[in-house]
Simulated assay, not measured.
Amino acid sequence: MLKPMMYIFGTVGFIGTTFLSAAVNLMTVSLGASTLVTALILNIPSIRRALGLPLGPADETPAQQQNKVQYEAPRAPEAAAAASQGMAGLRERLTSSLDDMKKGVSESVSNYTGTYSGTEQERAERKRKEMIRKLEDLRKQQEREQFEQKYKGKK
C-alpha cells in the first residue's frame, strides 16, 4: 500500500506546489537531492565503517549470514497443517478468514444498530458477556456504597 501512496502523494504534492512561489519548489528539489546524495554516500561500505555504522546485508559474507539467527513467526498447529495440505489448506484458510470477516461485519452492524444477527450460540455468548458486565457493574456499585457507608458515614 505504501508504493501506490508514494505516487499519489508525489502527484498531489507536485500539483499543489506548482501554484506556489519558485522558492518553495527550489527548496523541495534541493531537499530531495540532498536526501538522495546522503543516502548514496551512506551506502558506501568504507564510509559506513569510518562512521561506525553497521554494515548492510549486502556487505556480509554468506558465512556471516548463515551464523545469524533468523526470526520465524510462531505458527498454530492448525496453520502448519493447513500449509502442508496445499490447496485444501488454502480453502480452509479462506473459509476461516471469510467467517472471521462475517463475524466482524455482524459485530459492527450490531454496534451501530443495537440489534444482533448471528447464530444461536453467538447470541447466547454475547448475552452471557453482557450479563457478566452488568453483574460486574453492580458489584462495583455495591462496593462503592459500602465504602461510603463505612468511611464517609453517608447513607
Results as ranks from 00 to 15, higher is better:
residue 119 T to W: 00
residue 59 D to F: 04
residue 29 V to Y: 12
residue 82 A to Y: 11
residue 115 T to D: 09
residue 61 T to S: 15
residue 99 D to G: 06
residue 110 S to H: 04
residue 41 I to E: 01
residue 114 G to I: 04
residue 71 Y to L: 02
residue 56 G to S: 12
residue 93 R to W: 11
residue 57 P to N: 10
residue 125 E to T: 06
residue 97 S to G: 15
residue 61 T to R: 14
residue 67 N to C: 02
residue 121 Q to V: 13
residue 40 L to R: 05
residue 64 Q to S: 07
residue 105 V to R: 07
residue 26 L to P: 00
residue 37 V to M: 15
residue 73 A to S: 12
residue 77 P to H: 00
residue 28 T to N: 12
residue 33 A to S: 12
residue 95 T to N: 15
residue 119 T to H: 00
residue 77 P to W: 03
residue 26 L to N: 13
residue 31 L to D: 01
residue 78 E to M: 10
residue 106 S to W: 06
residue 78 E to D: 11
residue 89 G to L: 05
residue 67 N to R: 13
residue 71 Y to A: 07
residue 126 R to V: 07
residue 109 V to M: 12
residue 69 V to R: 08
residue 26 L to F: 09
residue 105 V to Q: 09
residue 50 A to M: 11
residue 103 K to S: 14
residue 34 S to G: 03
residue 59 D to T: 06
residue 117 S to R: 15
residue 72 E to D: 08
residue 122 E to F: 01
residue 25 N to E: 05
residue 96 S to P: 00
residue 58 A to Y: 15
residue 67 N to L: 09
residue 37 V to G: 05
residue 88 A to W: 10
residue 113 T to I: 06
residue 63 A to R: 13
residue 38 T to R: 05
residue 110 S to I: 02
residue 126 R to S: 07
residue 79 A to S: 13
residue 99 D to W: 09
